[in-house]
Design a protein around this nucleic acid. Sequence first.
DNA 1: CACTCCCGCCAATTA
DNA 2: TAATTGGCGGGAGTG
Length: 892
Amino acid sequence: ENMFDRSRMAPKTPIKNEPIDLSKQKGCTPERNPITPVKIIDRPQPDPWTPTANLKMLVSAASPDMRDREKKKELFRPIENSEQSDTCDSLQYDIVDDSTVDEFEKQRPSRKQKSLGLLCQKFLARYPNYPLSTEKTTISLDEVASILGVERRRIYDIVNVLESLHLVSRVAKNQYCWHGRHNLSQTLKMLQEAGELQYGELMTSQHKEQDLEYKFGEQKKEAIPDFQDRPLLEFSEPDCISASANSRKDKSLRIMSQKFVMLFLVSKTKIVTLDIAAKILIEETQDTVDHSKFKTKVRRLYDIANVLTSLGLIKKVHVTEERGRKPAFKWIGPVEFPGKTDELRGHSPTSDPLPGTQRGACAQYQTSATGKQRFTRHASFNRAQPCEAARRKVSSEPNSPRQERQDENCSKMINLAAVCRQKIEEDTGNKACDTDTILNSSKNSNITLPFSLLPVPGDSDFCVNPLPQAVFPVVQADVPSFSLPIGISSQASHLSTPAASKTENGKPTLVPNQPFLCFPSSSLFMLCGGLQENNLSETLPASGDVGHRSAVAQAAVPPAGCQKRSSHKCSSPSAPVDDEEPAAKKQTLEQSDLPLSLVVPKKPSESPKAEPSPGSGCSSAVHLEMNCLDLASPAAAEAANEESTKPLDCQEREKQSQNKNTDEPPPGNEHISKENANQPFQPQYLYVQPTAGLSSFNFLFSANQAPGAISLAANQLPSLSVPCVMVPSAALASFPLVCSPSFTSPLSPVPDGSFSAAASTSFSMSSLASTTPVFISTTAVVTPKVSPAPSVDPQQPAHPALHLSPVLTRSCSAVKLDSPVCMGHPVTLLKLQQPSSAPLTPKSIRPAHHEAFFKTPGSLGDPVAWKKNEGNQTRNASSVQRRLEISSTSPD
DNA sequence: CACTCCCGCCAATTA
DNA sequence: TAATTGGCGGGAGTG
């Protein structure tokens, strides 16, 4: 009912606002302003009743309900008055109908009136579903709370859920930015993908909840899902960071909301019962089974469900199963997102700028000028095209602190993950584990593409390289915006870039940005760089670079990557670094972070090392990272050595890549292909030659990466680490890019070589974390020493995406460093397995068990472990995450 | 009585 | 240290 009113009122709504606002309104939305006055109009006073008091009395006499209402009203009056909302409604009615109506409405001051669902409707009524891009609507929590007459706590409940779907993003303390439903499709798509990975099968199979449960359990055990899931989840969560800290976040309403939505999207029937959902969620958490926890979970689910219901995404139903009748919710929102998403879709991946991309991009972390890194959360996603503009603004605006939430990142992550899988699957084809997922993915455009990338670039050896290229393009941008945007394609990139804020530029800075380096030698490859925030960002060059490159390369790729800097959350750690990264990568994905990892190679084997960590926590992300890392080296090595050795996948990939190069694979990917062809892309990455041994790895990191980045890693997942690269080389440094042999293009020189060894190191640590030892070495590579200036690093950007893709592609196999093959490259890769769950990665292995499907970042263990190491820092980081950033950095 | 879920304490995080 | 966020669960409203 309210809704209706609202609808009518909608415009009015604002009006409603009472004076109350006054006090607070800060920035509020424009809408409001007008509002205030209006309200008054009808009833200045809250007492609508008064006028009708008589009637009411009568009524009440007639019905108890009425009485109650009145009572309540009285009780509430203060509130109402202040609020208006209620009043307003009533007013309206009054106006229209009259008291009668009023009464109705008013009547229920009771609980229902105060329900979260209704409150959410009121909240939503205040903002347009599809706001113009240009206009940014900021939401002041205080204001809204006062307007709606509720405590702020309630607003958090709503906002957290909306944030999980990217309808809003937290900009700063007490301030959120309204994005509307522009990106909803993408978000849902992401969630669907993520959900498939995680839950996938389960849901599918079961029609019913029961089944679900049932399956659920099984699956869980299998663990597979977990792995991936986690990461995904993590994405969502921003903070992966604090490992230990996770606790709070893990439970976050935001995450629960995403998971809950995932369940719907994955479910065939689109019906999810509360108890099942609660069980699933609990499991993830692992919480003990306590009954109490279950109850708590259910309470939360009701909260979430109320909001989702208000959004028109689900509705309450009852499922009668054999077991009995249970409360459940049915998904009534969109089911397919493929392109749908409208806008997003519209863009072709390639072509478009991609809003999505942007989005992805948006999220970033940045280091603040301050030097610390923080993340900002943006809602990158959210913004779509408009975003660009906005972004620009944003970027320019320093203050906007947007923080992005990790969610975005998460989402990206998710996407990435999905992608990876897909790829993997693709590659493997078989492997299949996850087929389903994969399939899905295929649908999506997004994902896939990227993978393609993977291919190796020129050499087969490197699997890595390919990545990059691919990556970018891959990016898939499509998909999620975030992630990858395909944008990669150049355009996308560009977009993203902007988004990033700094970015934009595009200018050709290529070089600088570029993050990549290639080393001819070997195998290897690269990494991602980090970027720096600023610099990089500025660098934007990425875009420019990209362009450049592309041009050079062929265009290729633009890696879009560029852009983004966003960081991902995950990466955060790295993030910092990455952030910088820039662009390119980033753009690509935000995700990039993720996984970035590089991709690489093939090889299946896993590396043990990696595992360790993984196990812990991070789960996927971690894994990825590891993988990446590993991959890189090993993979590369192997690859190099033998394809044969490698798993088919690798080969395949390579082929693919090659083919692509040759052919062009996918459309979107053109760039990619180009890139591949060119290989240039690579630039983004660095190669390192491997020397032998693990040690050998070289990773490169982006130059920029600062050590800090590494830390990020710690954060987790983010694989970021991966990206990194390590390598040292000064040489590299010198170059801006390194090219691999194949590659030629020169990138511009990087600023500096900053790659620092150190960084690398760090990296390793972090990322690897623990586990692995990564190495970093410079060895082969070079000297790391270069001093790193921070600046440089352009590279970064791209990679991530790339990496990911590759990784994905490959599946997870992990390679181990050990492998002889690798020799050259020490590193190992991991592949991911696709298999369904598989977690191929070591981690998966271990963890496999994890109970939870979804894990939040926090849950992840591993991370934790290493986190511990990093300890404080990590935490800090997390906190950091939340912080807003102000963008000092932003170029503008 | 079971289902919902509001309310607000209070801890974790941030500023 | 103060303010903001948000987990959590008691317990009330509803049917």
